[in-house]
Computed example of a mutant assay.
Amino acid sequence: MSAPRIVPLALLAGVLLAGCASQTTKPEQYSGFLSDYSQLQPATSASGAPVLRWVAADFDPSRYRSVMVEKPQFYPKPQPSAQVSEATLQQIADYLQQALQRELQGRMVVVDQPDQDTLVLRSAISAVDVSPEGLKAYEVIPIALLAAAATTASGARDMDSEIYVELEALDARTSKAVARVVRKGHGLALENSNTQLTLNDLKPALDTWALDARNFKP
C-alpha cells in the first residue's frame, strides 16, 4: 500500500469534522469567487436539496424580463488529472450553461446581452471531487479541482463523484447582487480509481441545478 499524501493539519481536521456525508459546502471550501459569504444561510432548493443561500430582501424575480447566463468559470484555475481531464472540465462548463439556458427560457427570455430588465447569472465550479465510496476521512483540497488521492489496498472500491458550484444573480441595471447560492452535487459512482470521470457522470447533478434555478423562489 502506498503511503498517504500529507495534508496540512488544519485541513485534515476540517475534513475529519465534516465527514464525507456532508450535504453542503463547508466554509473552508468556499472558493472566493463570491464577493460575500457572510450572509449565506441553510435552505432547501426547489428539488428538496440542502443548499446555502442569500436573497436580497427586495428581490422580485417578476420584475426581470430576461436573463443572461454567463459561461460558468472554474475558480480557481482547474488542475486536470488522469481521472478528470481538461476536455471533461470544458464539457461540464458548457453543459451547465446550456442546461441553465434550457430551463430558464421556460420562465423568461434568454439573452446574450443584458438590458435594464435583465437578470445576470454568473457561476463558478469550485471543485470536483472523486473519492472512495464510504471512506470517512478522504482527502479533499478546498478551492481546488481534483481527483482525490485517497486509495485502497485493492483499488476496487467504488468512487463517489461530487461537484461544487457557487452562483450569483446580478441586477443588470445596478450591477448589485440579488441572490447567492452555494451548493454541492452528487454524480454517479465510478467503478474504481482507474475509471475516468465523464460529463455523463455529473449530468444528473447539473440538470438538477438547472431545474432548481428555473423553480427558484425567494
Rank of each mutant, 00 (worst) to 15 (best):
V130Y: 01
L135S: 08
S154V: 08
N200E: 15
S175T: 12
Y138D: 15
L190E: 01
G134R: 06
R173E: 05
D207N: 14
V140H: 15
A144P: 00
D112I: 00
Q196F: 08
L135N: 07
L121A: 09
I125W: 00
E162H: 06
L202P: 02
R180S: 03
Y138K: 05
A169T: 03
Y138R: 15
S123M: 01
G155D: 01
D115Y: 00
A148Y: 10
E133N: 06
A153T: 13
I125K: 00
P204R: 09
R157V: 15
D117R: 09
Q113I: 12
T151G: 12
L197M: 02
D207R: 15
A172F: 04
L188F: 10
L199T: 01
E168P: 03
N192R: 04
Q116N: 06
Q116F: 03
P142T: 01
Q113W: 08
A172N: 07
V181A: 02
D160F: 13
W209T: 12
K176N: 07
V165I: 12
W209G: 06
S154G: 13
R122K: 15
I141Y: 11
A172W: 09
R157D: 12
A189F: 14
Q113H: 07
A172R: 04
A148Q: 11
L170T: 09
A150P: 11
S193I: 13
V178Y: 03
T174I: 09
V120Y: 01
W209Q: 11
A205G: 10
L167W: 02
P204W: 05
T195V: 06
T195A: 10
G185M: 05
H186F: 13
L190W: 02
R183A: 09
K176F: 12
P114K: 02
A144C: 11
A169D: 14
A179P: 03
R183Q: 14
Q113K: 10
T151Y: 08
K184V: 02
G187T: 02
P142M: 07
I163F: 10
T118C: 10
A169E: 04
K136C: 00
R122V: 02
L146F: 14
Q113A: 09
V111Y: 00
L145W: 07
W209L: 13
S154H: 04
A177V: 07
A148P: 12
A189V: 13
T118Q: 00
L121T: 03
L188E: 15
A153I: 15
P204M: 07
T151I: 10
